[in-house]
């Protein structure tokens, strides 16, 4: 009787040990996955990229930028309903917002008034720099 109890005890300890390890590793993997696919990284990336493109652009240029990463990592429900707020230029700031809570802005020094058009279905942003007399 005693021996049987002891065996059961060992088995329980093994199971608890394995469960604890699996739970621990799962939490770690989930953390890494959340961190890697965080939209905030892409907000920063695209706002800086678009700002630098505007800085280097000449009047009359039209630039098409693929933003597949941004669409993939955005808060999908929010982006579908608020896509017109995702890529915006205000004064000389490029603002990129991929979720209801996020958002990142970066300034450009080129004194132009660019127009950003975001096409979520094509996963692209079109940057238009108007000609000086427009």
């Amino acid at each position: 009787m005693l021996k049987k109890n002891k065996r059961a005890n060992i088995l329980t300890e093994n199971v608890v040990f394995i469960i604890l390890n699996v739970v621990f590793l799962t939490i770690l993997v989930v953390f890494l996955f959340v961190k890697v696919s965080d939209g905030a990284v892409f907000e920063e990336k695209y706002s800086k990229q678009i700002a630098l493109m505007i800085d280097s652009a000449q009047p009359g240029m039209q630039i098409s930028l693929e933003v597949k990463d941004a669409v993939d990592h955005a808060e999908s429900g929010w982006l579908r309903n608020n896509f017109h707020e995702a890529f915006v230029v205000e004064d000389n700031l490029v603002k990129v917002k991929l979720s209801s809570k996020g958002g990142y802005s970066y300034s450009f020094f080129n004194d132009v008034y660019p127009v950003l058009e975001f096409y979520p279905d094509n996963e692209e942003v079109v940057i238009t720099i108007p000609k000086e007399n427009e």
């Binding site: 000389n92 700031l93 802005s105 970066y106 300034s107 450009f108 020094f109 080129n110 004194d111 132009v112």
Partner: peptide, 10 residues
Amino acid sequence: CNLNFNVEGS
């Protein structure tokens, strides 16, 4: 030279 040195207020 069409320059604007204004930046975000953050």
